[in-house]
Amino acid sequence: MRALIAPDSFKGCLDAAGVATAIAAGVRAAAPAAEICCLPLADGGEGTLEVLTGVGGFQRREREVSGPLGRPLRASYAVSGATAVVELAAASGLTLLSEQVLDPRRSSTFGTGELLLAAARELPPGGRVLLCIGGSATNDAGTGLLRALGVRFLDIEGDPLPEGGAALARLAHIDLSGVAPEVRQLSIEVACDVTCPLVGPQGASAVFGPQKGASPPVVAELDCALTHFADVVQRQFGVALHDLPGAGAAGGTAGGLHALLGTRLRPGAELVAQASGLTRRLETEVWDLVWTGEGSLDRQSAHGKVVSCVAALAARHGFPVIALAGQVSPGILEAVPGLTAAFALADRPLSLAESRVRAAELLTRQAEHLTRLYGCARPGGPER
């Protein structure tokens, strides 16, 4: 038996490598002679850097940068040859702030820009940066990041705006003349884990503002500020961001970078699958079973998440795909094309706390049982 194991993390419980290891243990228990390949994945959000530094020869670099509210912190990026990986969550992430200090009116992506600039200075001309932008604490349309790269955001008097999304309501002009030469020579690909537009009821402020500490009045204020930002961008550069799918990712960071630096927006899971070698291995090798999983399989799993990416890639070559998850919503097989079967982990009613403690054990047990069942259905019967 040849098994390819490519899961996402179970957030708050196991990282993607831990999930893959647990599934592999179950497959090995049922089929001791199995050939197993573990390729932990991520969708461009928090944990993507960790996944990619485990493959492809990426080496970590650490720098002191500005946190979401300006306090210094240590954050990492990674480099391999002419490619660098920068994770927004490392410098501007939601997990870096306590609930008591969350403030999307003032929080900034400036520290992520500092990481990107440091990476750019290590790369040769024409180098490539994979910018993973999930998990932000910000709503500034990436203006902090861009400011760190040399872009100036000016009010009607010609003075620089302060950091944060609320200040964008006073934006009058954007000056790109100071962008660092190293950055101009880069190819930057933005890994997005959501497809929301920049503004409106499904936009960055309305959908993600509350989890970043925005009350309803602040959500309205931030949405107006992003709308004004998009108006200025369209007037000055002719790029329409308001309804662009994916522009609202990371508080509008995806939209800001696309409009002002011409960055390419890509589904994060697809980008990581390619960088990790998953796409190549599915195209060039034969697998009996492909395993994937994430903490919760629901309708969101169908939109740019790891499970849907793995299922789609494997289905092109006719490989069966099994997904394991803490919980599985009804209709998931219809929602995720290419998914053969999906199973929840619980072996009895469990609290969330107990589910987290037992996650590795339950993954291993479920993988073992399913591998045994698959073995019984194979020509020649179960593997001994």
Rank of each mutant, 00 (worst) to 15 (best):
M1W: 06
A3Q: 04
S9E: 08
K11W: 10
G26L: 13
V27I: 14
V27F: 06
A29S: 15
A34I: 11
I36M: 03
C37T: 13
C38E: 13
C38W: 00
P40M: 08
L41G: 01
D43Y: 11
T48Q: 12
E50T: 14
V51I: 10
L52K: 04
G54N: 11
G54D: 13
V55S: 11
Q59S: 13
R60E: 09
R60D: 05
R60H: 04
E62L: 12
E64G: 00
S66E: 14
G67A: 13
L73E: 13
R74M: 12
S80H: 06
A84H: 02
A91N: 07
S98Q: 13
S98W: 00
P104T: 04
R106E: 09
S107N: 03
S108T: 15
F110A: 04
G111Y: 03
G113E: 00
G113T: 00
E114N: 03
L117M: 05
A118P: 02
A118Y: 00
A119L: 08
A120S: 10
P124G: 05
L131S: 08
G134F: 15
S136W: 08
A137C: 11
G142Q: 03
R152H: 14
R152M: 07
L154M: 12
I156C: 14
I156K: 15
E163W: 00
E163N: 05
G165C: 03
G165Q: 01
A167N: 04
A167S: 15
L168W: 03
V179I: 15
E182S: 07
E182A: 14
V183K: 00
R184V: 01
D193A: 12
T195R: 14
P197D: 08
L198T: 02
S205L: 04
F208D: 00
S215G: 09
E221G: 04
E221D: 10
A225K: 00
H228Y: 07
Q234N: 15
Q236T: 14
A240C: 14
H242C: 08
L244M: 15
G246I: 08
G248H: 06
A249V: 11
G252D: 01
A254C: 07
G256Y: 01
L257Y: 00
H258K: 12
L261D: 02
T263E: 06
R264G: 01
R266C: 15
R266I: 15
V272K: 02
A273S: 14
A275R: 09
G277C: 09
G277H: 08
L278W: 03
E283H: 05
E285R: 05
D288H: 13
L289S: 05
G293N: 01
R299K: 10
Q300D: 10
S301A: 09
S308N: 05
C309H: 07
A312Q: 13
A315K: 06
R316K: 13
F319D: 00
P320D: 09
P320A: 05
V321D: 02
L324V: 07
G326R: 04
T340P: 12
A342N: 07
F343Q: 12
D347L: 06
P349H: 03
P349W: 08
E354G: 07
S355K: 06
R356A: 13
R358L: 15
E361V: 15
R365Q: 12
R365H: 11
R372N: 11
R378T: 14
G380E: 07
G381V: 06
P382V: 15
R384V: 15
